[in-house]
Amino acid sequence: MATIHLYLASTPHQPEHVTATTPAAWVVILRYADHQKALNNGGYGHTETQLTLRALITALSTLKRHDLPVHVHTTTEPVAAIISEQRYLSWRQNNWQVPETDQPDLSQWQELIPIIEEFPDLTITYHTTDDPTMTTATTTLTAVMTKL
């Protein structure tokens, strides 16, 4: 069975360095068999985690088939860790009491989790931005950033 691959890159902004005028963008390259599609969006004042969550919500929402394996490749380590370790399950069980560092992104997590659960065979892998696996996504991100 073929796997859908999502290659996701976003600008690496940490919260302490983001202002309302900080340019930011995300890119997702969707690949399935011989098909490829790129999604992207940009704006200002968003952290890397916020961008990655929005990209993941958008990409998963575009998929029509939920019966195929989905492998998400991302350059955002905290998001990959939370999803692969399923930390969000305890957040929901504890009435959305989340660690302070994740609170600014809570509404996006609450939007993403039901979407993730629609894909029974979803895996996520963290890659560094210089990993050759991520070349198309990071190159496309650079192009999107030059247009902001």
Rank of each mutant, 00 (worst) to 15 (best):
L8E: 03
A9G: 07
S10M: 00
T11V: 05
T11H: 12
Q14S: 04
P15M: 05
P15R: 15
H17R: 10
A20N: 08
A20Y: 04
T22S: 11
A24V: 06
A25S: 13
V28F: 04
L30H: 14
R31L: 09
Y32H: 12
D34L: 14
H35M: 01
K37R: 14
K37T: 11
K37L: 05
A38F: 00
L39C: 00
G42L: 01
T47D: 02
E48W: 03
T49A: 07
Q50C: 00
T52L: 04
L53C: 10
L53T: 13
R54G: 00
I57Q: 02
L60F: 08
L60Q: 09
L60S: 08
S61E: 01
S61N: 14
D67M: 13
D67C: 02
D67S: 07
P69G: 08
V70L: 03
H71V: 06
V72Y: 06
H73C: 08
T74K: 06
T75P: 07
E77W: 05
P78S: 06
A81I: 10
S84D: 02
E85Q: 14
R87C: 10
R87W: 15
L89G: 02
S90I: 10
W91G: 06
N95G: 14
V98E: 01
V98T: 11
E100S: 11
D102E: 15
Q103E: 07
Q103R: 14
Q103Y: 08
P104M: 12
P104Q: 09
P104D: 12
D105W: 10
L106S: 03
S107K: 12
Q108N: 06
E111P: 03
I113G: 00
P114V: 06
E118R: 15
F119C: 06
P120I: 01
D121M: 07
D121Y: 06
L122I: 15
L122Q: 06
T125N: 12
H127M: 01
T128R: 13
T129W: 07
P132V: 12
T133K: 11
M134W: 07
T135L: 10
T135I: 00
T135M: 03
T136A: 13
T136P: 01
A137E: 12
A137Y: 04
T139V: 01
T139F: 09
T142H: 15
A143S: 11
M145H: 03
L148E: 05
L148V: 07
